[in-house]
Each structure stands twice: as structure tokens, then as C-alpha cells.
């Protein structure tokens, strides 16, 4: 299944990468990552002066023999942090038709999960929409997401989960995050949100702020399609309908309208980008027209989501 989605070469290159976090997390479970904080791993970190109360067994006697001063030898800590990958599964991810925003997003989620699992990080993937809150979804497992996987084999479950989702409903971003974070207490770590973010700007800010307050290392990938950026291709005069809210509007393709729309969308994107920049949230725009592997292997490392 996975090889039908990604090539073997691509998977091998993913294995050489890991999810990057700009925050330090203390965890009950040791992981494969070396934290900057001193710990109990075998990897040497530094020397420091001995102070009363320090473990005597960490004193480096060789140095004492040469200098007659007591120095402690410190080692780096092996840590483990959770990686949360959250995919927008609202109906808007299916539109404009042909853009393949949701496909692109779940492939990104799968790739990032694979990167996480390759470094034995615990990875959880979930999808959000307001189907549950609106009562139109009976299968709540879709909303709850996958369990935390830390072994590479978990990728298959994640793949099944992601490719089993049928997007629908609207978006209740802050509401969903409130419930999600309450369920995953104690699994601090990196929180990657994959969405088109074409919903209420105030709502997305509330959601992202919630993650910040809970000390997640939040990373935002906004997925948009080429038709989203230029919706007038093939439209001369049309009635546009919001697939989530049902709101509609008559429009015509004129130079003035094109210009106005372009400015409006740019402002919407800019608003999110500026918010992320101001709050130390990594942000990138993923256009579905861009070649997928190139985006994962070049763009994501470039901005620091993975390394």
C-alpha cells in the first residue's frame, strides 16, 4: 500500500529525515533524540565544575589527576516527543475540484508520519471537521484519529486511516482542538496542522493560540490549489457556492473582479502568515501544483519542519 503511494527511493530519503522541534520536551519515555539538556545517554555533552551534592560517580578523575580540580562529565539526554499530525477533513478540502487539496494533505501527513516513525517518535494522526459536533458523523474514531505509533510498522495503520477518510462537513477548528488536546494530555510535542485555513480567521487564531498555550511546537502547512489561487479559469459568469456554509454569490470574470479576488485571497493568506511569524509558528504554503516529493524533500527541510 505504502509503496503504491510513495516510491521506494522517496521512502529511503524520508528515513534519513526527522521531525524538527524548536522546543525541548521532557518525557517519561526515552527516545532516540538527543536533547540539549543534560541526561543519561552515553553521548558526551560537556564538563562542568563540581558542586557539593553532585553525583561523585560522574567526577572525571583523570582531569582531577592532572589539574587537582573536580570536574563532572555530563552526557546528553535521549528524549522522545510526540508528533501530532492534524489533517483538515472538511468539505472545503475537496474543492475546487481538480485541485486535490485533500489528497495532497493526506500524502503530506503520511510522509511526515513516516519521518516521525523512522526516528521512533510517537506519531498520532487525526482529521478534523465539524461532522461530529453537527451530529452527522456516527464513527467518532475518524475524529479521534489514530493511536500513538512509535514503531515504523504503524505507518500502515496511519495510511489506512488517512485513505479511509471521506471529507465532509464544515470546520470547527478551535472546538476540535479543545477536545483533541484534552484527550492527548501528556503527549506534548510537535503539532503539524495541514489545512487550507479557508475558514474564519478568528477561529484559526483561537485554535493555534490554544496549541501555543499548551506548549506544542506548532507547524502550519496551508494547502491550496491552483484553482483556489485563480478561480476564474473556465468561469465567465457564475454563481459561486460555499460548499460548507451554502452561501452563494453571483460573479463575473472581469479584470476588476480578478484583481479584487487576488488581493482578498492574498490578504487572507498574509493574515495567517503574519500571525504564525509573530507567534513562532512555522508556516509554509503548499500549492498542490507543486511536485510533491520536491516539496517534502526540499521545502519542508528548508523552512525547518523536518531536517
Amino acid at each position: 500500500m505504502l509503496t503504491t503511494i510513495f516510491s521506494g527511493e522517496f521512502l529511503r530519503r524520508l528515513e534519513a529525515l526527522c521531525i524538527q522541534s524548536i522546543k525541548e520536551f521532557r518525557s517519561v519515555r526515552k527516545g532516540d533524540r538527543i536533547a540539549k539538556i543534560s541526561g543519561t545517554s552515553i553521548e558526551f555533552a560537556d564538563y562542568r565544575q563540581y558542586f557539593p551534592g553532585d553525583e561523585i560517580r560522574h567526577i572525571d578523575w583523570n582531569i582531577y589527576g592532572r589539574t587537582e580540580r573536580l570536574y563532572l562529565k555530563t552526557f546528553k539526554e535521549d528524549i522522545d516527543f510526540s508528533t501530532h499530525v492534524l489533517v483538515d477533513a472538511s468539505k472545503s478540502m475537496l474543492f475546487p475540484e481538480g485541485d486535490g487539496k485533500f489528497d495532497y494533505a493526506r500524502k503530506l501527513a503520511l510522509a511526515l508520519s513516516y519521518v516521525g516513525l523512522s526516528t521512533h517518535s510517537s506519531v498520532k494522526v487525526a482529521a478534523f471537521s465539524d461532522l461530529e459536533t453537527s451530529g452527522s458523523l456516527s464513527d467518532t474514531s475518524f475524529i479521534n484519529g489514530t493511536p500513538f505509533f512509535s514503531k515504523r510498522s504503524g505507518i500502515f495503520s496511519i495510511s489506512d486511516y488517512l485513505f479511509g477518510i471521506t471529507p465532509g462537513g464544515g470546520t470547527d477548528f478551535p472546538g476540535y482542538l479543545t477536545r483533541y488536546t484534552s484527550l492527548t494530555k501528556g503527549h506534548r510535542g510537535v503539532f503539524i496542522v495541514l489545512s487550507d485555513f479557508l475558514f474564519d480567521p478568528a477561529g484559526r487564531k483561537r485554535g493555534l493560540n490554544l496549541l501555543r498555550y499548551l506548549n506544542y511546537d506548532v507547524k502550519v502547512i496551508q494547502v491550496l490549489g491552483p484553482h483556489e489561487m485563480d478561480p476564474f479559469r473556465g468561469i465567465s459568469s457564475a454563481e459561486v457556492v460555499d460548499v460548507e456554509t451554502g452561501e452563494r454569490r453571483l460573479i463575473s470574470d472581469t479584470r476588476a473582479i480578478r484583481k479584487e479576488y487576488s488581493v482578498a485571497l492574498e490578504e487572507h493568506i498574509k493574515d495567517l502568515r503574519e500571525f504564525c511569524k509573530a507567534n513562532r509558528i512555522l508556516y509554509t504554503l503548499a500549492l498542490t501544483s507543486r511536485e510533491f516529493e520536491s516539496f517534502v524533500l526540499r521545502e519542508l527541510p528548508r523552512i525547518g519542519i523536518i531536517k
Binding site: 479557508l198 478561480p231 457564475a238 454563481e239 460548499v243 460548507e244 452561501e247 452563494r248 479576488y261
Partner: peptide
Amino acid sequence: VEISSIIPW
């Protein structure tokens, strides 16, 4: 035409 969001419009 069904669109993802009416917000820019």
C-alpha cells in the same frame, strides 16, 4: 460553481 470558501469572495 462550488468553491471551498466564500471568504475571499
